[in-house]
Design a protein around this nucleic acid. Structure first.
Length: 329
DNA sequence: AAGACCACCAACCGCCGCCTC
DNA sequence: AGAGGCGGCGGTTGGTGGTCT
């Protein structure tokens, strides 16, 4: 009895979303639209990056983790859907529920009961979750108070209530007038040190500044320089792999190679990685990162022909994720 | 100043209904 | 027809920041 869970909960991130996860999800939905939530986490992220970065990831993954599946977001599909619908959707209006809206909520609730999605449908820009929360924290008490003593005023004055809820509070919900900047509402995990790997393609005597946390578990600590240099060298030498030191083969002790993990790891400043992955010899800091554009398509085609022609990489970007997942044929 | 308590809200969970095969 | 997949819904939880004592 009962349905199978929407996905395996093992190894998935839970709790507050990071800014990077938001970015991956938003970029994916911008390109591919909503829907097919269950498959979204695996596919998200793979479409969103500079094509040189794809190749870097591909080579890295295939060389050292050929049997791993390549997934994009360590989130349950349902979680992705909820995050998008309740928080990331561009048309969401946040904070400052007006008196009119409030009255409407009360009337509709009287009419419909706890049918939050129906009520939300009558309030453009409002989500069912927001209305539900607002009802539970504000209106339910007031309505019951009003029923007991119809003339009784609201517990808190309007200004006091919105002082914490609506007016660009620390939660980042923003004021109703300028909700354009979606800011995370809870503390984000931001404990990692970002290292620009391009630095290591130039500096072959790296300092042990940052280590791979997965590696630490195995006693011997390797710097990210040590981890990255071989793959950089490999790409520069057009597939000659003999020079790669054998001690680069280490055990991450994990079954999947997750893009969000990689991007969250010590050596990834995402914006820099686009142009510093060892393939692109002329980084262009002005070029906006993480955008999927015609330029990227051209760049991809060029990169594919120069770096991966021997591997038969398709020039069709849409084919890349399955290509990455399945490994090279 | 510090601990306890409270309010808020993002996120999770389990169930339901629709759709497809 | 019915089994399973998927999206949607509503109830609930838990983390965080603010207020109170």
């Amino acid at each position: 009895m009962g349905r199978s869970p929407c996905c395996s909960k093992e190894g998935l991130n839970r709790g507050a979303w990071t800014a990077l996860e938001d970015k991956i999800l938003t970029d994916y939905i911008k390109v591919h639209g909503e829907g097919r939530w269950r498959n979204l986490p695996k596919r998200a992220g793979l479409y969103n990056f500079n094509t040189n970065f794809y190749i870097f990831l591909f080579l890295f993954k295939n060389k050292h983790y050929p049997n791993m599946s390549f997934i994009g977001l360590k989130r349950c599909g349902k979680s992705c859907r909820l995050r998008w619908l309740n928080y990331l959707r561009p048309d969401i209006k946040r904070g400052n529920i007006s008196a009119d809206e409030e009255e409407l909520i009360i009337k509709l609730h009287k009419l419909l009961g706890n049918r939050w999605s129906l009520i939300a449908g009558r309030l453009p820009g409002r989500t069912d979750n927001e209305i539900k929360n607002y009802w539970n924290t504000n209106l339910s008490k007031r309505v019951s108070d009003r029923q007991k003593s119809p003339a009784a005023p609201s517990k808190k004055p309007e200004a006091a209530r919105w002082g914490t809820v609506g007016n660009g509070n620390a939660n980042g919900n923003g004021s109703g007038s300028s909700p354009t900047h979606v800011v995370r509402t809870r503390a984000t995990r931001c404990s990692k040190v970002f290292i620009n790997p391009h630095h290591y393609t130039q500096n072959r005597d790296p300092k042990p500044s940052s280590t791979c946390s997965n590696h630490r578990e195995h006693g011997e600590s390797k710097t990210m320089n040590e981890l990255l240099l071989p793959i950089m060298s490999e790409s520069e030498n057009e597939g000659t792999t003999d020079h790669i030191s054998s001690d680069f083969t280490f055990d991450f002790n994990m079954g999947e190679f997750c893009l969000s993990d990689l991007l969250n790891s010590d050596f990834c400043d995402v914006n820099e990685l686009n142009y510093s992955n060892g393939f692109d010899s002329s980084p262009s800091p002005d070029q906006p990162p993480l955008e999927f554009s015609d330029e990227m398509l051209k760049e991809w085609t060029a990169a594919a022909s120069t770096h991966c022609s021997h591997q038969g990489v398709a020039s069709n970007l849409q084919s890349l994720p399955p290509f990455l997942e399945n490994g090279i044929e």
